[in-house]
Design a protein around this nucleic acid. Structure first.
Length: 198
DNA sequence: TTGACGATAGTCT
DNA sequence: GACTATCGTCAAC
């Protein structure tokens, strides 16, 4: 399972990369245990034209500076004081674009993920939703800034390409005014491991 | 230094 | 469907 290299993430169109990420595999390796699955839901954020983006209009802070790095870097931050969010930085260095990974369908390490989430049986809420996904994969703040071809955090092609893509507004960005209406959320149609509006 | 507020999830009614 | 836990971030004071 060879990780995708930098070229996959460098293109300027963040929405295109977001779509391409659907069906790819996202995995972490912690304590020698591989966990992860197929990405089923993503959202695109663009620093250049998007009020919902942390880096809108060139805003640069201690938190969001990872977004300005080269495509293929992980951007991890804490939301609501308790949930970690995992993002994929896209575009070239200096352009603050990123894709929020919101949900995946488990493939590897289901038992370990169930334990991390304190669940007894496999059900969508194991990995449907950005905070849930980060908890299931044991994503940590220290993963911020890592390349997505690291030994303990990587994205790979798992050979899935037969599915339809749904599209909608993004979740929880009402504060962004008219940009909250942008159709920058993409998901695998009909897949149960999607957070809302399957 | 301070305080208002989130790219959420789990629990309770 | 409503309520809230919980804390880092950031802009304003």
């Amino acid at each position: 399972m060879a990780p995708l290299g930098p070229e996959f993430y460098l293109e300027a169109d963040v929405e295109a990369v977001a779509r391409k990420l659907l069906g790819k595999g996202l995995f972490t390796r912690k304590n020698d245990v591989l966990t992860g699955g197929m990405i089923t839901e993503v959202e695109a954020y663009s620093g250049s034209d998007d009020k919902a983006c942390h880096a809108y209009n060139g805003r640069l802070t201690a938190r969001n500076r990872t977004m300005y790095r080269s495509g293929g870097t992980a951007y991890v931050y804490l939301c609501y004081g308790m949930h970690l969010m995992l993002n994929v930085v896209t575009n070239v260095e200096g352009k603050a674009d990123a894709v929020l990974i919101r949900a995946l369908e488990p493939i590897l390490g289901v038992q370990t993920m169930l334990e991390r989430r304190k669940l007894k049986r496999l059900e969508p809420r194991l990995t449907a939703g950005p905070g849930a996904l980060a908890a299931a994969l044991a994503v940590e703040r220290s993963d911020d800034g890592k390349p997505l071809w690291s030994d303990d955090l990587f994205i790979a092609d798992v050979g899935v390409n037969e599915f339809s893509v749904g599209r909608s507004k993004r979740i929880g960005v009402e504060y962004a005014g008219e940009d909250a209406l942008l159709l920058r959320r993409f998901f695998v149609l009909g897949n149960p491991f999607v957070s809302k509006l399957r």
